[in-house]
Simulated scan of single mutants.
Amino acid sequence: MAVEAGDLAPDFELKDQHGTPVRLSDFKGRKNVLLVFYPLAFSGVCTGELGAIRDELPSLGAAEDVQVLAVSVDSMFALRAWADQEEYRFPLLADFWPHGGTARLYGVFDEEKGVALRGTFVIDRAGTVRWKVVNAVPDARDLDEYRKALAGL
Protein backbone atom coordinates (compact mmCIF):
# COMPACT_ATOMS: atom_id res chain seq x y z
CA MET A 1 0.00 0.00 0.00
CA ALA A 2 1.47 3.34 -1.04
CA VAL A 3 2.04 6.17 1.40
CA GLU A 4 0.16 9.30 0.32
CA ALA A 5 0.22 12.99 1.25
CA GLY A 6 -1.71 13.43 4.49
CA ASP A 7 -0.63 10.03 5.87
CA LEU A 8 1.53 9.64 8.93
CA ALA A 9 4.95 8.63 7.58
CA PRO A 10 5.78 5.03 8.56
CA ASP A 11 8.76 4.87 10.87
CA PHE A 12 11.81 2.86 9.85
CA GLU A 13 15.37 2.24 10.96
CA LEU A 14 18.20 1.77 8.46
CA LYS A 15 21.99 1.98 8.72
CA ASP A 16 23.72 4.90 7.07
CA GLN A 17 26.94 4.78 5.06
CA HIS A 18 28.93 4.65 8.33
CA GLY A 19 26.87 1.82 9.86
CA THR A 20 25.04 4.15 12.24
CA PRO A 21 21.34 3.33 12.70
CA VAL A 22 19.04 6.17 11.61
CA ARG A 23 15.34 6.23 12.46
CA LEU A 24 12.83 8.55 10.84
CA SER A 25 11.30 9.14 14.27
CA ASP A 26 14.65 10.62 15.42
CA PHE A 27 13.65 13.80 13.56
CA LYS A 28 10.04 14.03 14.76
CA GLY A 29 9.44 17.35 16.47
CA ARG A 30 12.91 18.58 15.44
CA LYS A 31 13.22 18.76 11.65
CA ASN A 32 11.30 18.40 8.43
CA VAL A 33 12.56 15.46 6.36
CA LEU A 34 13.18 15.20 2.64
CA LEU A 35 13.03 11.41 2.14
CA VAL A 36 14.49 10.49 -1.24
CA PHE A 37 14.39 6.94 -2.60
CA TYR A 38 16.66 6.24 -5.59
CA PRO A 39 17.53 3.08 -7.55
CA LEU A 40 21.30 2.59 -7.24
CA ALA A 41 24.51 4.28 -6.15
CA PHE A 42 27.07 5.15 -8.81
CA SER A 43 24.45 5.41 -11.57
CA GLY A 44 24.36 8.53 -13.73
CA VAL A 45 20.88 9.87 -12.96
CA CYS A 46 21.16 9.10 -9.23
CA THR A 47 24.55 10.81 -9.00
CA GLY A 48 23.13 13.87 -10.75
CA GLU A 49 20.05 14.01 -8.54
CA LEU A 50 21.84 13.63 -5.22
CA GLY A 51 24.58 16.01 -6.37
CA ALA A 52 21.91 18.59 -7.12
CA ILE A 53 20.38 18.10 -3.67
CA ARG A 54 23.85 18.42 -2.09
CA ASP A 55 24.60 21.61 -4.03
CA GLU A 56 21.14 23.20 -3.97
CA LEU A 57 19.85 22.34 -0.49
CA PRO A 58 20.16 25.93 0.77
CA SER A 59 18.01 27.12 -2.14
CA LEU A 60 15.46 24.34 -1.54
CA GLY A 61 14.46 25.80 1.82
CA ALA A 62 16.03 26.48 5.19
CA ALA A 63 18.82 23.88 5.21
CA GLU A 64 18.93 23.87 9.02
CA ASP A 65 15.25 22.90 9.15
CA VAL A 66 15.39 20.07 6.57
CA GLN A 67 17.09 16.72 7.01
CA VAL A 68 17.79 14.83 3.79
CA LEU A 69 17.58 11.04 4.06
CA ALA A 70 18.48 9.22 0.83
CA VAL A 71 17.55 5.52 0.58
CA SER A 72 18.60 2.78 -1.85
CA VAL A 73 18.93 -1.00 -1.83
CA ASP A 74 22.75 -0.76 -1.94
CA SER A 75 24.91 -2.07 0.89
CA MET A 76 26.31 0.42 3.39
CA PHE A 77 29.80 -0.33 2.02
CA ALA A 78 28.85 0.76 -1.50
CA LEU A 79 27.08 3.81 -0.06
CA ARG A 80 30.19 4.76 1.95
CA ALA A 81 32.41 4.61 -1.15
CA TRP A 82 29.88 6.65 -3.15
CA ALA A 83 29.37 9.23 -0.37
CA ASP A 84 33.13 9.68 -0.03
CA GLN A 85 33.59 10.04 -3.78
CA GLU A 86 30.71 12.51 -4.25
CA GLU A 87 31.08 14.32 -0.89
CA TYR A 88 27.50 13.73 0.21
CA ARG A 89 27.06 15.17 3.69
CA PHE A 90 23.63 13.71 4.39
CA PRO A 91 22.83 10.13 5.37
CA LEU A 92 22.69 7.53 2.59
CA LEU A 93 20.59 4.73 4.05
CA ALA A 94 21.01 1.08 3.10
CA ASP A 95 17.65 -0.62 2.44
CA PHE A 96 19.72 -3.73 1.78
CA TRP A 97 18.10 -6.35 4.03
CA PRO A 98 15.36 -7.22 4.01
CA HIS A 99 15.94 -6.19 0.42
CA GLY A 100 13.88 -3.05 -0.29
CA GLY A 101 11.81 -3.41 2.87
CA THR A 102 11.51 0.33 3.50
CA ALA A 103 10.87 1.10 -0.17
CA ARG A 104 8.07 -1.50 -0.07
CA LEU A 105 6.68 0.10 3.11
CA TYR A 106 6.41 3.41 1.21
CA GLY A 107 5.05 1.77 -1.96
CA VAL A 108 8.03 2.69 -4.15
CA PHE A 109 9.76 -0.67 -4.73
CA ASP A 110 9.96 -2.00 -8.29
CA GLU A 111 9.57 -5.76 -7.79
CA GLU A 112 10.64 -6.55 -11.36
CA LYS A 113 13.90 -4.57 -11.24
CA GLY A 114 14.63 -5.10 -7.53
CA VAL A 115 15.28 -1.41 -6.84
CA ALA A 116 13.41 1.60 -5.51
CA LEU A 117 11.59 3.92 -7.85
CA ARG A 118 12.48 7.60 -7.63
CA GLY A 119 10.09 8.36 -4.78
CA THR A 120 10.31 11.57 -2.79
CA PHE A 121 8.39 12.39 0.38
CA VAL A 122 8.40 15.69 2.26
CA ILE A 123 7.61 14.92 5.89
CA ASP A 124 6.87 17.69 8.38
CA ARG A 125 8.07 17.86 11.97
CA ALA A 126 4.88 16.19 13.16
CA GLY A 127 5.66 13.15 10.98
CA THR A 128 2.97 13.79 8.36
CA VAL A 129 3.68 13.37 4.66
CA ARG A 130 3.02 16.78 3.16
CA TRP A 131 4.06 16.07 -0.44
CA LYS A 132 4.96 13.09 -2.59
CA VAL A 133 6.18 12.44 -6.11
CA VAL A 134 7.17 9.13 -7.70
CA ASN A 135 9.09 8.90 -10.95
CA ALA A 136 10.04 5.80 -12.92
CA VAL A 137 13.62 4.55 -12.65
CA PRO A 138 14.96 6.41 -15.74
CA ASP A 139 13.15 9.72 -15.02
CA ALA A 140 15.01 12.35 -12.98
CA ARG A 141 13.11 14.52 -10.51
CA ASP A 142 12.67 18.29 -10.78
CA LEU A 143 14.37 20.35 -8.05
CA ASP A 144 11.85 23.16 -8.54
CA GLU A 145 9.16 20.77 -7.28
CA TYR A 146 11.22 20.27 -4.08
CA ARG A 147 11.48 24.03 -3.65
CA LYS A 148 7.70 24.44 -3.89
CA ALA A 149 6.98 21.57 -1.50
CA LEU A 150 9.51 22.70 1.09
CA ALA A 151 8.36 26.32 0.86
CA GLY A 152 4.91 25.15 1.96
CA LEU A 153 6.14 23.84 5.31
Rank of each mutant, 00 (worst) to 15 (best):
A2M: 12
A2D: 05
V3H: 04
G6K: 00
D7W: 01
A9C: 01
P10R: 04
D11Y: 02
D11R: 04
F12A: 15
E13L: 05
L14W: 04
K15Y: 15
D16G: 11
Q17R: 04
G19H: 11
T20K: 11
P21F: 06
R23T: 15
R23P: 14
L24Q: 01
D26F: 09
K28D: 02
N32F: 04
Y38W: 02
Y38E: 05
Y38G: 01
P39W: 00
P39C: 02
P39S: 02
L40M: 10
F42N: 12
T47C: 06
G48Y: 08
E49T: 00
L50Y: 00
G51M: 00
A52H: 03
A52W: 02
R54I: 03
E56T: 04
E56W: 07
L57G: 11
L57E: 11
P58E: 00
L60G: 13
E64F: 07
E64C: 10
V66L: 04
V66F: 08
V66W: 07
Q67D: 11
V68W: 08
V68M: 07
A70F: 11
D74G: 08
S75P: 08
S75H: 11
S75R: 08
M76K: 14
F77H: 14
F77W: 09
D84G: 03
Q85E: 15
E86F: 12
R89K: 14
P91H: 06
P91F: 05
L92N: 05
L92I: 10
L93H: 12
A94R: 00
W97L: 10
P98A: 09
G100H: 04
T102C: 12
T102D: 11
A103T: 11
A103V: 05
A103I: 11
Y106H: 13
G107N: 07
F109L: 01
D110C: 06
E111F: 08
E111Y: 07
E112R: 09
K113H: 14
G114Q: 03
V115P: 07
V115W: 05
V115Y: 09
A116D: 01
L117C: 06
L117I: 05
L117S: 11
R118G: 04
R118Q: 02
G119Y: 00
G119D: 00
V122E: 05
I123R: 01
I123V: 05
I123L: 02
D124I: 06
R125K: 08
A126P: 08
G127S: 03
T128R: 06
T128F: 05
R130Y: 03
W131T: 13
W131H: 13
K132E: 08
V133H: 12
V133R: 10
V134Q: 11
V134L: 12
V134S: 09
N135L: 11
N135I: 12
N135R: 13
N135Y: 14
A136I: 08
P138Q: 07
D139R: 12
A140W: 07
R141I: 15
E145C: 09
K148P: 07
A151Q: 10
G152L: 15
G152W: 13
